[in-house]
């Protein structure tokens, strides 16, 4: 299978959906001439023109609201918010309008829109450009939340998100854009709400998403040499969450570790862990362990940043604790 980078996979997904459906259009800051802060929309302005690839002013709230309104009237907007850290500026429109518009009108409207954004640490950009804030959105019923870890998932999930009739918050990771991986040819669509077993194992289940899946896979490789067989589940879609795939795995391994880059307190790992306990308590041979960022803002200095976010060593440690 051909290998392409995560950013290219996203770019392909946008192009294919724009070809397929003339209602799909893009709007956001620096997405046209510049091609996006991380290059995802490169070449699209040239190909589709300024009516379908709209460079906007720095107005996140208006970008989001405009996407909602256009979606309500039949368009399929894909809005880009450059960093998830800037979502604070868009939260009212997203959480009070997009998430609720259908429900509050008794199902009369739909708002089929995608909010693409990116998050995560690793580039030492400091506390305003490095956060993982997915749990802001998972706490709002009515929003779907997607966080792909591989190029294939990035492409397939973005296509599914654009086709979905609900508002989807699609969070990419800044350290993944250049990561390459196999991506199937053709109309590759990955359904929302379906987790993926990225590595089969029998001793312990590590549940993760986004970049931390890759960290977990590295940890699994090291643990394999020590005779520990780790199953790695990539939830891919946080909302709706495919708890069945997670629980089936825990029923097999009887041990669970949840790993993500967001802070521990209030992070989505708490939700996953609790659902494991609710659904598979009798199968657990030990406490569910969490690996997450320390509860502080992401500091700038590389040594501090690396200390705060999860590493393969912290996953290895948690796996061993889960097995103890």
């Amino acid at each position: 299978m051909r290998e392409i980078a995560y950013w290219q996979a996203l770019n392909e997904a946008l192009q294919e959906e724009m070809e397929r459906d003339p209602n799909v259009f893009l709007l956001g800051e620096d997405i046209g001439v510049y091609g996006g802060a991380y290059g995802v929309t490169r070449g699209l302005l040239e190909k589709y023109g300024p009516e379908r690839v709209m460079d906007t002013a720095i107005s996140e709230s208006a970008i989001t609201g405009a996407a909602i309104g256009a979606a309500m009237m039949g368009k399929r907007p894909v809005a880009e918010i450059m960093y998830v850290d800037f979502m604070g500026q868009a939260m009212d429109q997203l959480c009070n309008q997009a998430a609720k518009i259908r429900y509050m009108f008794g199902g009369k409207f739909k708002a089929p829109m995608v909010m693409r954004t990116e998050g995560g640490a690793g580039r030492t950009l400091g506390a305003h450009h490095s956060q993982s804030l997915e749990h802001w959105f998972t706490g709002i019923p009515g929003l779907k939340v997607v966080m792909p870890s591989t190029p294939a998932d990035a492409k397939g999930l973005l296509k599914a998100s654009i086709r979905d009739d609900n508002p989807v918050v699609f969070i990419e990771h800044k350290m993944l854009y250049k990561e390459k991986g196999p991506v199937p040819d053709g109309d590759h669509v990955v359904p929302l709400g379906v987790a993926d077993v990225k590595r089969q194992g029998k001793d312990v289940t590590v549940v993760s998403y986004s970049r931390t899946v890759l960290v977990a896979l590295e940890a699994a490789k090291i643990l394999e040499a020590e005779g520990i067989d780790v199953e790695v589940i990539d939830v891919r879609t946080l909302a709706p969450l495919d708890i069945k795939t997670i629980v089936d795995s825990v029923k097999k391994t009887n041990r669970a570790v949840v790993a993500h880059e967001a802070c521990k307190t209030g992070g989505f790992g708490g939700e996953i862990g609790m659902q494991i306990i609710e659904n598979a308590f009798d199968y657990l041979d030990g406490p569910v362990k969490r690996v997450a960022a320390i509860d502080v803002p992401i500091p700038k200095s590389p040594v501090l940043e690396q200390y705060v976010i999860p590493t393969k060593d912290s996953i290895i440690k948690a796996v061993k604790e889960a097995l103890a």
Binding site: G126, H128, L304
Partner: peptide, 13 residues
């Protein structure tokens, strides 16, 4: 660590 924000802020802060 001798930075004006002890290395926690960085260029943008």
């Amino acid at each position: 660590s001798t930075g004006c924000c002890k290395g926690k802020g960085g260029s943008m802060h």
